[in-house]
Write a protein that binds this DNA or RNA. Structure first.
Length: 120
DNA sequence: GCAATGACGCTCT
DNA sequence: CAGAGCGCCATTG
């Protein structure tokens, strides 16, 4: 493609790192790519992906833990199936428990340093 | 080039 | 917890 925003490639690089069986939010991808607050662009970058891409785009969901694709579209179903195939489970409201399936880079994070407080 | 749209997210009601 | 408003920016008519 002639004109490809340089940000898109950064997003793709992050998405490629999402481990199987885990999901990341659009905002999370944007932040990890160094562009906090640009979640919308991530969604745009995903929409711009070509068919047959090897990128695990299905592991990207919105901050509510729900598939952002329109329910009446084909993509919604595809993403849901691919996630279920990775053991990612949905609740009765078609939402994923981010507390359990959200990708947490930077290690297990099970060792919170005393004094260090979560900045938001 | 302006206006509307959209695979988002945060805050306030 | 759900809905409305606003910000952000690339794409399209």
């Amino acid at each position: 493609m002639p004109s490809s925003p340089r940000h898109f490639d950064r997003f793709y690089a992050v998405v490629a790192r999402i481990p199987r069986g885990r999901v990341a939010t659009y905002g999370q991808v944007a932040r990890l790519a160094g562009l906090p607050g640009h979640a919308r662009l991530v969604g745009y970058a995903m929409a711009a992906l070509p068919d047959g891409t090897r990128l695990p785009w299905h592991r990207v969901v919105n901050a509510r833990g729900e598939i952002s694709l329109r329910r009446d579209g084909p993509g919604h179903h595809v993403q849901r199936v691919r996630l279920r195939r990775e053991s990612v489970r949905f609740d009765g409201r078609d939402r994923i428990a981010l507390t359990e399936f959200l990708w947490r880079p930077r290690g297990p994070a099970a060792t919170p340093s005393p004094g260090s407080r979560r900045a938001r």
